[in-house]
């Protein structure tokens, strides 16, 4: 597989500069900087309460940042609504809220952006085209579905996330934000999803992968932003950090050592 060639001097697709967000007097995020480049995966790692959700909400247009800058293609942007972020090419796939289980795959795939034919009162949902495109797009991502008419609920969790990723890519996402896509999945299913994350990356999409699992992030990530209680522990390129270091930082470094000490058997 060939990766699109990117020169490092290009303006990144998305750049975060010292972003901050408060909820009342609570500082939810402060001083967050990171870059997302086309054809790369930027992983955002952090424990519960680290500020991952707040960051997603800023990137996807649900909230505005109170401090700092968000740059898209080098130009500052501020999204007032999810629709604006979507129109700018930033798509978000939420963990549990990506698909409607009782609806057919092709209906889900085009939900909210249904192709139509005919005019006036006879304008209708072009089901034949929707089925075709769904089958073709999923095949292009290497997702093998037996029948686009089967309800999404019959798919496995990994397949569901994959279909949601394929959908975002098809609808022109340049930046794809994935909210904990592997957290509810077993090892094998998580592998399936990570493979499609890599597929999206290889098609030139800039991916923001949000996770609390360094073992899922490390193999697929190009750069890693570590969050702890709303602050950044730094952004690292893959060559600058090992998996062990990532895991250690992620778990709170010194805190983990203290915990290990505490859990040691007495007398050892």
């Amino acid at each position: 597989m060939t990766r699109p060639l990117m020169t490092r001097d290009d303006a990144p697709l998305l750049e975060l500069r010292d972003l901050g967000k408060d909820y009342g007097s609570v500082i939810a995020l402060d001083g967050i900087s990171a870059t997302v480049r086309a054809g790369e995966v930027t992983c955002v790692l952090g424990d519960n309460g680290a500020g991952k959700s707040t960051l997603i909400k800023i990137l996807s247009g649900v909230h505005r940042a109170d401090r700092g800058e968000l740059l898209l293609d080098g130009a500052p942007v501020a999204f007032g609504a999810p629709r604006e972020a979507l129109d700018a090419g930033i798509a978000t796939v939420y963990q549990d809220l990506a698909m409607i289980p009782l609806m057919a795959i092709w209906r889900n795939f085009f939900l909210g952006a249904e192709p139509t034919k005919g005019w006036g009162p006879f304008r209708r949902f072009d089901g034949a085209q929707a089925r075709d495109v769904t089958r073709r797009e999923l095949a292009a991502m290497g997702i093998d579905i037996r029948d686009p008419d089967q309800p999404v609920g019959t798919l496995s969790g990994g397949e569901r996330q994959s279909v949601a990723i394929a959908r975002a890519v098809y609808f022109g996402a340049r930046v794809l934000i994935l909210d904990e896509p592997t957290s509810a999945l077993g090892v094998k299913q998580a592998g399936v999803v990570l493979r499609y994350v890599a597929q999206a990356r290889d098609r030139g999409v800039g991916v923001v992968l949000i996770t609390h699992n360094p073992h899922h992030a490390y193999p697929v990530g190009d750069r890693f932003l570590l969050l702890n209680r709303g602050r950044s522990l730094g952004e690292f390129a893959k060559e600058d950090i090992s998996r062990e270091e990532l895991t250690r930082l992620m778990a709170g470094g010194a805190e983990l050592d203290a915990l290990a000490h505490e859990l040691e058997r007495p007398g050892n």
Partner: peptide
């Protein structure tokens, strides 16, 4: 399509 979706999961 929207009717099915709204009833299926309105947040999604």
């Amino acid at each position: 399509n929207w009717v099915f979706a709204t009833g299926g999961d309105d947040a999604a």
